[in-house]
Design a protein around this nucleic acid. Structure first.
Lengths: 121, 121
DNA sequence: TGGCGACATCGAAGAACGTCGATCTGAGGA
DNA sequence: TCCTCAGATCGACGTTCTTCGATGTCGCCA
């Protein structure tokens, strides 16, 4: 996924009389959609906690049984949140025997952070 | 707002028989709530585009009349999204004469990016 | 092979969100 | 003073999200 905020100049010149005549559209609609999808995956306290706990966990991975108790939600709900994070490319899922281990997708959060600092620059 | 992912060790030791006995809770519930609130502010394509356009605009600020056209949404909807971004501390609003100018809150996105890289470390 | 334990999936209920048209407010100009 | 224009607020509607209990699936162990 190449979701960096590239500055693509667009010549959208509406008949605006107030401010600047030209609008440089920083992120096109498709890029914005992808970025928003990533942010939406982190837009829930439970999912932020999940990511944090997994990141701080020994070996950088954790199984669901480690996650339900500190979050304080039911097992189906935690599974649901984990699925969202995996589908967003933030976590990875590995089945080992009876248990499913979740870990951070390497570079995913860093890449998202880069998008933010690019926009702020 | 001090929403950095500090690693606060918590002795939540459930009777887990599968993996690690102790869970280091990285982000406590309150920090997770604050971070999720920030991410939720960016969890919509329209708001990501608004931030991008404002950041790329001349002078780093733009009035609403510059924003409705490229976003393709009605003026009340754009106002609504801008309000969410201001309340999240991502944008600032300045009334100058007849027009309202929106700009990036300095350091807001950078601080959010730091939270992400902290979690990934 | 039968049972158990870990986890995913399903379906439903309630809350939250995004969007719009209509309307209100407040500043500038004639 | 009255009109116009930029923008905010209001009320409503449809969609999406969060959460749960119930149930399904799959691997392990006796």
């Amino acid at each position: 996924m190449s979701t960096t905020l590239e500055l693509t100049p667009v010549t959208t010149a509406p008949s605006g009389a107030c401010c600047a005549p030209l609008v440089r559209e920083a992120a096109d609609a498709e890029t914005a959609r992808e970025l928003a999808h990533l942010f939406k995956a982190l837009a829930d306290p439970a999912r932020v906690q999940l990511v944090s706990i997994i990141a701080a966990h020994d070996g950088g991975e954790a199984c669901v049984c480690d996650l339900t108790a500190p979050i304080g939600l039911s097992q189906p709900t935690v599974s649901h949140h984990l699925k969202i994070l995996v589908e967003a490319g933030i976590l990875t899922r590995t089945q080992r025997g009876k248990w499913a281990y979740y870990a951070l997708m390497p570079g995913a959060l860093t890449r998202l952070a880069t998008s933010l600092t690019d926009a702020a620059a």
